[in-house]
Amino acid sequence: MPRYEYRCRSCGATFEHTRPMSEANLPATCPQGHDDTVKLLSTISVGGRATSASGSAGGGCCGGACGCGG
């Protein structure tokens, strides 16, 4: 289940709330009981390694197509 981050406009607290995506836009009450909250945009990081369609690893400035050895 996704975790969403919110900030309370009343007290400035930042908090997280785990809820289904179908409820992502519903209001959230801060831990201090205030209702004036806003959902923050979160960034995610996905790890992995990209390869070209042929399966060979390119690299450098142009993906290895220019012969620069990069």
Rank of each mutant, 00 (worst) to 15 (best):
E23Y: 00
R19D: 04
P2E: 03
G69P: 00
C61T: 03
L41F: 09
T51Q: 06
L41W: 02
A53S: 09
S56M: 11
D35M: 14
D36W: 00
A24C: 11
P27F: 11
Y6H: 08
T14Q: 12
C61S: 08
T14W: 05
G33H: 03
Y4D: 05
A24N: 08
G59Q: 05
L26E: 10
A57S: 04
S42G: 15
A53Q: 08
S42Q: 15
T14S: 14
L41N: 15
C61I: 00
V38P: 01
F15R: 00
A53Y: 04
C11Y: 04
T37I: 05
A24S: 12
S45I: 13
D36S: 09
D35I: 13
R49N: 14
G64Y: 04
R19F: 01
R19C: 02
A65Q: 07
D36P: 02
S56D: 05
I44F: 14
K39I: 12
A65G: 02
E5F: 03
G33P: 03
N25W: 04
A50W: 09
V38R: 05
M1E: 13
T14G: 12
T43H: 12
G47T: 06
Y6C: 07
N25L: 14
L26C: 06
S22N: 10
A24I: 06
G64C: 07
R9M: 13
A57G: 05
D35Y: 14
S52H: 14
N25K: 13
A53T: 04
C61E: 02
T43E: 15
V38A: 12
G48L: 00
A53N: 05
I44E: 15
P2T: 05
G48E: 02
A50V: 12
Y6R: 07
C66P: 00
S54H: 09
G70Y: 02
F15G: 08
T14I: 09
P27W: 12
Y4C: 09
T37D: 03
A50H: 10
C62P: 00
S45W: 15
V46Q: 10
A13R: 08
S22E: 12
A50G: 12
E16I: 06
R49D: 11
A57M: 09
Y4E: 08
R49E: 13
G67Q: 02
L26I: 07
T18D: 13
S10W: 01
H17E: 03
E5D: 15
G63I: 06
E5W: 02
L26R: 15
T29A: 03
F15K: 04
R7T: 04
